[in-house]
C-alpha cells in the first residue's frame, strides 16, 4: 500500500464566539487506513468532521481533502470531491420526506445517470449490506427505530462506493451483534475497496477490532498514534481512557477472542 495522505490538516483553529474548540490541530489521514477519533463529549469531534467536509468554515488553518484545498474549492471541484466522500452524521440526518430507498438513491440521482431499475437494485444491495431488512426500504425515516436510522444513514454514505467515509459514532445505538457486524463490514470494505475510514467512536471494541490508528482530541489538539503508543502516553485523560475498567474489559475480551 502506498503511503499517501488523503486528508491533511495544518494549524486548524475553530472557535464559536469566545469558545475555542480547536487550537492548532495537525492531522494526516493515510489512504486505506481506519482512523478513529476519540475524545470527551464536546471536545469537537463532530466539529472537526464537519470542518474537513467544508460544512464549517475554520477560523484559521488549511485542510486538504483528496489533494484539494477545502476552503478554495469551486462548485465543480466540490461536487467531484463529494462523490468520493460518504458521510454518516451523528443522528443519521436522513431526508425525512424520502423513503430509505430514495435516501440511498439521492446521491446516485444527483451525481450519476443510472436507470431506475439499476438504482433500485443497488439501493437494495446497500440496504441489505448494512443489515436492514428488505421491508425497511419503502419506509420513511420517521417510521424507523434509532438504530435502524443509523444503518440507513450508513447505506446512504456508502451509496456511491466512496473512497473516504466519515462516520460519526456509527455503532452508538446498535445492538452488540449489529455493532460487531458493522465492524466486519467496515473491515471488508476497507480491504476490498481500499476504503479510508475516519470514524468518531467511543466503542472500545471497534477501536480494537478495526482501527489502525487513533486520534485523541485533548486540550484542543489532536494526538495521533497506534493503540500501543497511546497506552504509553502519560496525559491523564488518555491514561484514564486506555487504562480504565472498560478498556481493560475490552482488551481482555479481545485477548480471549484471539487465544
Amino acid at each position: 500500500m502506498t503511503i499517501e495522505p488523503v486528508i491533511q490538516i495544518r494549524g486548524l483553529i475553530n472557535r464559536f464566539g469566545r469558545q475555542v474548540v480547536h487550537d492548532g490541530v495537525d492531522l494526516d489521514v493515510m489512504r486505506g487506513e481506519v482512523l478513529a477519533l476519540v475524545g470527551g463529549s464536546g471536545t469537537g469531534k463532530s466539529v472537526l468532521m464537519r470542518t474537513i467536509l467544508g460544512l464549517n468554515r475554520p477560523h484559521a488553518g488549511t485542510i486538504e481533502l483528496l489533494g484539494a484545498d477545502v476552503a478554495r474549492m469551486d462548485a465543480n471541484a466540490r461536487a467531484a470531491t463529494q462523490t468520493r466522500c460518504g458521510v454518516l452524521f451523528q443522528d443519521g440526518a436522513l431526508f425525512s420526506s424520502l423513503s430509505v430507498t430514495e435516501n440511498v438513491q439521492a446521491p446516485m440521482r444527483e451525481h450519476l445517470r443510472l436507470n431506475q431499475g439499476l438504482m433500485d437494485e443497488l439501493a437494495a444491495l446497500k440496504i441489505s449490506m448494512v443489515g436492514l431488512p428488505p421491508d425497511a426500504g419503502p419506509k420513511r425515516p420517521g417510521e424507523l427505530s434509532g438504530g435502524m436510522r443509523k444503518r440507513a444513514g450508513l447505506a446512504r454514505a456508502l451509496a456511491l462506493d466512496p473512497e473516504i467515509v466519515f462516520l460519526d459514532e456509527p455503532t452508538a445505538g446498535l445492538d452488540p451483534i449489529g455493532a460487531a457486524g458493522f465492524d466486519s463490514l467496515i473491515g471488508d470494505l476497507q480491504r476490498s475497496l481500499g476504503l479510508t475510514v475516519v470514524m468518531v467512536t467511543h466503542d472500545l471494541d471497534s477501536l480494537i477490532a478495526i482501527c489502525d490508528r487513533i486520534a485523541v482530541l485533548v486540550d484542543k489538539k489532536v494526538r495521533v498514534g497506534t493503540m500501543a503508543e497511546h497506552m504509553e502516553d502519560t496525559h491523564p485523560w488518555i491514561r484514564e481512557y486506555f487504562h480504565g475498567p472498560r478498556a481493560r474489559a475490552a482488551f481482555g475480551a479481545a485477548d480471549r477472542g484471539k487465544g
Binding site: T101, D120, E121, A124, L125, I127, S128, M129, P133, P134, D135, G137, P138, L185, D188, L189, R191, S192, L193, G194
Partner: peptide
C-alpha cells in the same frame, strides 16, 4: 485476491429487493 471479500459481500446481500406494491 483483494476483490474476494467484495464478491462475498455482494453475494450475501443480493436478491433482497422488496416488491413494489
Amino acid at each position: 485476491e483483494r476483490f474476494r471479500p467484495l464478491f462475498d459481500l455482494v453475494a450475501e446481500n443480493e436478491g433482497h429487493k422488496p416488491e413494489r406494491p
